[in-house]
Design a protein around this nucleic acid. Structure first.
Lengths: 106, 106
DNA sequence: TTGACATGCAACCAAATGGTTGCATATTAA
DNA sequence: TTAATATGCAACCATTTGGTTGCATGTCAA
């Protein structure tokens, strides 16, 4: 579960929309997910494959249907391991930036 | 400051590395940032432009040098507005997934 | 069993991406 | 003033990306 795969998966607006869709209603099939998006089923399949590879979506085969489930764990890990450290020092960096800007502009 | 620009900016490992570098030492010049990365200065310039466009980096011109400062605000907003909602229901989704998996596999 | 439905797979294509090289401009220091 | 330094800009290129179309496979229901 590489962090790079997760970031790249989240980079596309369609894929974020798919995650939003699963967040609203978990366990949707491919066809159900296609209804909310204006592109071919095959394109959605590719997006879902990328989300699966990033471990952001898990699938369960149910007969001829395939249910898609949101897996928030990688997002949580990004938030904790990478975003967290920037948040932690947010105010420090901001005040630092402010100081610098004030020093430059008379 | 579109969320899409921020996500796409974060998608590239080199750009994340540049943010890490600025996190370690804020206010570095272009040349300083180039030293830690194995590519041409012009390539780094492009990456920094994308980070600037996403408002993740702010620059201050200082004579013939240009200082680069990390701006953690957009990351913070992502964490709050988008990642937060997945984190919030992380356990719910996990237990839901677990239930489903148990229902499928005898 | 057969037709309809849900998904899988592959070839193809345009556009975006990430990198290069080459040259121009602006500022500092000797 | 002149040479070195720091950055800017543009053209170009290979690869990746995001989408398409066409067809194959597997499963349910009548």
């Amino acid at each position: 579960m590489s962090m790079d795969a997760v970031f790249r998966a989240l980079a596309d607006p369609t894929r974020r929309q798919l995650l939003d869709s699963l967040y609203a209603r978990n366990g949707q099939t491919l066809n159900a997910l296609c209804e909310r998006v204006d592109m071919t089923r095959q394109a959605v399949t590719k997006h879902l494959a990328i989300l699966e590879e990033a471990n952001l979506v898990t699938t369960v085969r149910n007969g001829r249907e395939k249910e898609h489930y949101l897996n928030p764990v990688p997002i949580n890990e990004i938030a904790e391991r990478w975003i967290g450290k920037f948040e932690r020092h947010r105010l420090d960096a901001l005040s630092d930036l402010k100081k610098r800007l004030e020093r430059e502009e008379p």
